[in-house]
């Protein structure tokens, strides 16, 4: 049986979910018997090719997040939102009740800082969206693993269920929102 191809990325997140993914520890070797990695922070591949499973950490707060998310959706047969930020918007979404213009003014214009009274406008920098969104509000998402972060055990259980063709279920102790 050929290995399933898996890609992962972190958008408006903290890489905590990726760190937690590494908490599956030596089971990573078992996993590698079943999957191979495409784009992930582990492989340093920059763009996602055709994959079976895409795992997205973090919410959508800027234009680059949208582009990466679309790349994942267009290339992955199954897309999984992992962690509170991808699932609910998470901590970055706590800015949603503020006006983006007010935020930028406050940070770059009003308060003392290193920006010399300018809002950064380098084309290399992705522009922020007016609101932060969970990823299911921007593309179709097939599965969700909540948690901040979900534990290594939860991620392991979820992936092994999915790879074995079972409907992934976490159950008490593995499903967590915090």
């Amino acid at each position: 049986m050929s290995k399933l191809r898996v890609a992962t990325t972190s958008l408006a997140g903290c890489f905590g979910c990726h760190t937690s993914f590494l908490d599956i520890d030596e089971r990573l070797f078992d996993l590698l018997k079943l999957v191979e990695f495409d784009r992930t922070p582990l492989t340093d591949i920059k763009h996602c090719g055709p994959c079976d499973i895409g795992i997205v950490e973090g919410g959508i707060c800027n234009a680059e997040n949208v582009a990466v998310l679309r790349e994942f959706r267009n290339n992955c047969k199954v897309l999984i939102a992992i962690g509170s930020c991808a699932v609910t918007g998470g901590l970055p979404a706590q800015r949603n009740h503020l006006d983006l213009g007010d935020c930028l003014s406050e940070v770059y214009l009003t308060e003392p800082g290193t920006s010399h009274g300018l809002i950064p406008n380098d084309p290399e920098l992705p522009l922020p969206l007016d609101k932060v969104h969970p990823i299911h509000e921007v593309v179709k998402v097939d599965y969700f693993i909540p948690g901040c972060p979900p534990s290594g055990d939860a991620i392991w259980k979820f992936l092994t269920d999915l790879i074995a063709g079972r409907t992934p279920t976490l159950g008490h102790g593995l499903i967590k929102y915090d």
């Binding site: 509170s84 609910t88 998470g90 901590l91 979404a93 706590q94 949603n96 901040c148 929102y177 915090d178």
Partner: peptide
């Protein structure tokens, strides 16, 4: 609502 469990 605004339910941010990680900080609650």
């Amino acid at each position: 609502g605004n339910h941010f469990c990680p900080t609650c």
